[in-house]
């Protein structure tokens, strides 16, 4: 940064310059230290453990919540998330088939154009 050129001298006309320099220098050091920290095996292991613990401990509650929502939806004669998802999957399959048909129609169109050009 441009303020770094006169690091140590106090500039009467730029009283915040020194503060900015200090901030930038400290920030750089802090940033480098943090990058080094997150690139250690200890950090990787700690993060992995924390994530794993959280997922393991919250899993049963999430399952309970899902089960009760499913029950409530069934009670109101509404489709569950799984049922809507299955429907969406079927629609995607239909889309794939339509796309394949589209490709075949393209091929037929090209063949017809070639044939008519040859005949004329």
């Amino acid at each position: 940064m441009s303020q770094n050129n006169n690091n140590t001298a106090f500039d009467l006309f730029d009283p915040t310059g020194m503060l900015k320099t200090m901030r930038n220098e400290n920030m750089d050091a802090f940033a480098k230290a943090m990058v080094q920290l997150v690139n250690t095996d200890a950090y990787a292991d700690a993060t992995g453990k924390m994530l794993d613990t959280w997922l393991a401990s919250s899993g049963p509650y999430r399952k309970m919540l899902d089960a009760s929502i499913k029950q409530a939806l069934a009670g109101m004669s509404l489709p569950s998330r799984e049922e809507v998802t299955r429907l969406a999957e079927r629609l995607t399959n239909i889309e794939f088939r339509l796309d394949d048909l589209d490709a075949k129609l393209d091929e037929i169109a090209v063949l017809l154009r070639t044939a008519s050009a040859r005949n004329s």
Partner: peptide, 20 residues
């Protein structure tokens, strides 16, 4: 690279994350 290091940790379980 952080991602390589993090994901190579034995405790990092992508299946558990995706299952959740």
């Amino acid at each position: 690279g952080g991602f390589s290091r993090w994901t190579s940790s034995a405790d990092f379980d992508p299946d558990r994350i995706a299952d959740t």
